[in-house]
C-alpha cells in the first residue's frame, strides 16, 4: 500500500463542466430518466454521461435519489420515462441480469454476501458462462469439472488479493462487515466486468479496512475498468474520484472534478437544504478528517 496520491484522470469532459456535460468517451449515458413513487419524484435526470476508464462518484444528501438512480441504471428498477445506453447499447426493457451480462456489475448498499454459501462458493457463483449452471449439464460432472477447476483457480487468486484466502471454506455469514464488502467486490470481479458500480462501498466498514478498500477501487481503474460509486464519505470521494456528480432532490445539480465541485454554490446549497445541522466544512470536504499522510 502506498501513501502517494493516486493519479487522477483528467480531460474527461467536453467544454464547460456543468450538469449534463458531454464526455470524451462515455461508457454510460442516460437521458430524461424519471422515476416517481406515488406523487414523489425520486429521480429526474435530464442528461448524464459516465466517463470510461475513470472513477466517478455520485454524491448528494440523503433522499437525493442516488440509490434509486443506481437501481434504474442496473435494471433493478424501471424508469417511468427516459433512455439509457451502455457502450452504445440501449438498456430499455432489459432486465437486471441481462444488463449484468453486458459487463456492468453492481454491489449493494446493504452488503449481499450469500451467508450460507462458503466464501469460495460465493466467488465461483460470480463466474459467467458456466456449463455446469445449465440444468442438464449440471447432472454430468464431466462437462463442467475442467471449467470448475479454472474458475476455482481464478477465485483463489482474487481471494488472495483481497486477503480472504484463509477464509475460503468458511460460511460468508462468519465474515465481518468489512470483509463482506471485500467479498462482494471480489465476487463482482469474477464476472470480468467493464463497469463496476459500487453502492456505498464504505458504509459500515471498520476504519482499519477502509484504506485497503480504497486501494482495491483504485486497482480497478488501473486494470482498465470504469468505476461508478455512491458515497457519503467525502474524504473518500475527494481522494479517489476523478469525476463527481452531485444529485439533489432527484436532479443532477453539479458535476466536475472533485476539487471544483466541492466549492460550487449549488453543492453547498444542496447539502444545506437537508444537512443544516452538519458542519459544512466536513460535508464539502474542505476540512480533512483523516490524518496527514493523505493530506493535500
Amino acid at each position: 500500500m502506498s501513501n502517494s496520491e493516486p493519479v487522477k484522470a483528467t480531460g474527461l469532459h467536453v467544454g464547460e463542466a456543468s450538469p449534463g456535460v458531454a464526455k470524451v468517451d462515455p461508457i454510460l449515458k442516460a437521458s430524461n430518466v424519471t422515476r416517481k413513487f406515488g406523487g414523489l419524484t425520486a429521480v429526474n435526470v435530464e442528461h448524464v454521461e459516465i466517463p470510461r476508464g475513470a472513477i466517478t462518484a455520485l454524491i448528494g444528501p440523503n433522499g437525493a435519489g442516488k440509490t434509486t438512480f443506481f437501481n434504474l441504471l442496473t435494471g433493478f428498477d424501471s424508469p417511468d420515462t427516459g433512455t439509457m445506453e451502455f457502450n452504445g447499447k440501449s438498456l430499455s426493457g432489459m432486465r437486471s441480469h441481462q444488463i449484468a451480462k453486458l459487463g456492468q456489475v453492481r454491489t449493494f448498499q446493504l452488503t449481499k454476501a450469500l451467508s450460507l454459501l462458503t466464501v469460495l462458493e460465493n466467488m465461483k457463483l460470480g463466474a459467467t458462462d458456466q456449463a455446469g449452471e445449465k440444468i442438464l449439464g449440471s447432472l454430468i460432472p464431466q462437462i463442467w469439472r475442467k471449467q470448475e477447476a479454472e474458475i476455482e483457480k481464478r477465485a483463489e487468486e482474487l481471494l488472495r488479493r483481497f486477503k480472504l484466502y484463509e477464509k475460503k471454506e468458511d460460511f460468508a455469514a462468519s465474515l465481518s462487515g468489512g470483509q463482506r464488502k471485500l467479498l462482494e467486490m471480489a465476487r463482482a470481479l469474477m464476472t470480468n466486468p467493464t463497469l463496476v458500480m459500487l453502492d456505498e462501498p464504505m458504509a459500515g466498514v471498520n476504519p482499519a479496512l477502509t484504506e485497503s478498500l480504497l486501494e482495491h477501487v483504485l486497482d480497478l481503474k488501473k486494470e482498465g475498468m470504469t468505476v461508478l460509486f455512491v458515497e457519503h464519505d467525502m474524504h473518500m470521494v475527494r481522494h479517489i474520484a476523478d469525476w463527481v456528480i452531485v444529485m439533489a432532490e432527484g436532479e443532477i445539480v453539479a458535476e466536475g472534478p472533485p476539487d471544483q465541485v466541492m466549492k460550487e454554490q449549488a453543492v453547498i446549497d444542496a447539502y444545506l437544504g437537508s444537512h443544516q445541522e452538519t458542519d459544512l466544512g466536513v460535508v464539502t470536504g474542505r476540512i480533512d478528517i483523516i490524518d496527514d499522510g493523505e493530506k493535500k
Partner: peptide
C-alpha cells in the same frame, strides 16, 4: 385495494 405502494430502494 386500500394498500399503498411500497417504496423500493
Amino acid at each position: 385495494l386500500l394498500g399503498t405502494k411500497e417504496r423500493i430502494g
